[in-house]
Amino acid sequence: MARRCNRGVTMTAAKPIRILALDISTNPGFAVLEVKRLKSGPRINIVHVTSVSTTSQSPDSHRYSYIEAATTMVLHEYGPFDVVVREHFTGGRNKRSTQTVFGAWAVIDTALGKYGYKVDEEIPPTTVKRDVTGKGSATKDEVEAGVRRMLALPDDFMFRTDDESDAVAIGLSYLVREGVIEKPKGAK
C-alpha cells in the first residue's frame, strides 16, 4: 500500500524515501535517513549523520561559509532527497544568538536552493521532543535516548554531538507526523 507524504512523495515497498533532517544553529546537525516500507513495517536507516562546529572567535562570514560548504557536501554526497525537514526556530536566548541562527538558516537555504531543494516542513522543538520521548520538555539526553530506542541503535553507535541526535530526532518526528512510524509507547 502506498503512503502519500506532504510533499507528494509516495512511499511504496519498492522505492525508499530519503530525508534530509536539519538541526540548524551555528553548529548545525545533519541527518540523512532512508525509509523502506517492508511487509513487517517501515525500516529506517541512518545513511549519514554529522555536525559542524564553528566558534564565535571566527568572523560570522567564515562561520557561514563553512556551514554552507558543509551543507553543500551533504547535498552532493548523499542526495537526492525526497524531503527536507528542519526544526522550527523563532528566537534565541538573546538578539545575537537569534541573528547567528538566522544567518545559518540563510546559508543553508542558499545551499539547498543551489541543488534545487527547499525546506518542505518545519517542526516546533516541543513537537520533536514529544514525538521521540513523549515529553515536550525533554532534555538533550532524553531526546538522544528516544532516538536510540526508536531506531534500536547498538550501544557502540555514537553521536558526536547533540546536534546530530537532534537532527535524527527531527527526521523521526517528521515520520511520526506523516503516519509512517508510530510514536514510542507512552508518547502523547
Rank of each mutant, 00 (worst) to 15 (best):
A2Q: 13
R4C: 12
R7M: 12
G8I: 07
T10M: 13
A13H: 00
R18S: 14
I24Y: 12
T26W: 00
N27Q: 12
F30E: 10
F30G: 11
F30D: 04
E34R: 13
K36F: 09
K39V: 11
S40G: 12
S40I: 15
R43V: 15
I44C: 05
I46T: 09
T50Y: 02
T50M: 06
T50Q: 10
S51K: 01
V52R: 03
V52F: 11
V52C: 12
V52M: 01
S53R: 12
T54V: 13
T55C: 01
P59L: 07
P59V: 05
D60A: 15
H62M: 10
S65K: 15
I67W: 02
E68I: 00
E68P: 05
A69N: 14
M73C: 00
V74Q: 02
H76S: 15
H76I: 11
P80N: 12
D82E: 03
V84L: 09
V85H: 10
R86W: 02
G91H: 13
G92Q: 01
R93M: 09
N94M: 08
K95M: 13
R96N: 13
Q99W: 11
Q99A: 14
T100Q: 13
V101S: 11
A104M: 07
W105G: 09
I108K: 05
G113W: 08
Y115T: 01
Y115P: 07
G116Q: 10
K118R: 15
V119C: 07
E121V: 15
E122P: 10
I123S: 05
P124C: 06
R130C: 05
V132K: 08
V132S: 09
V132F: 07
G136H: 07
T139Y: 02
K140P: 02
E144D: 00
G146E: 10
R148N: 02
L151C: 05
P154D: 07
D156H: 14
F157L: 06
M158T: 01
M158A: 00
R160V: 08
T161V: 04
T161H: 11
D163L: 03
E164Y: 02
E164R: 05
I170G: 06
L172I: 05
S173R: 06
Y174E: 08
Y174D: 03
I181H: 00
K185S: 09
K188R: 12
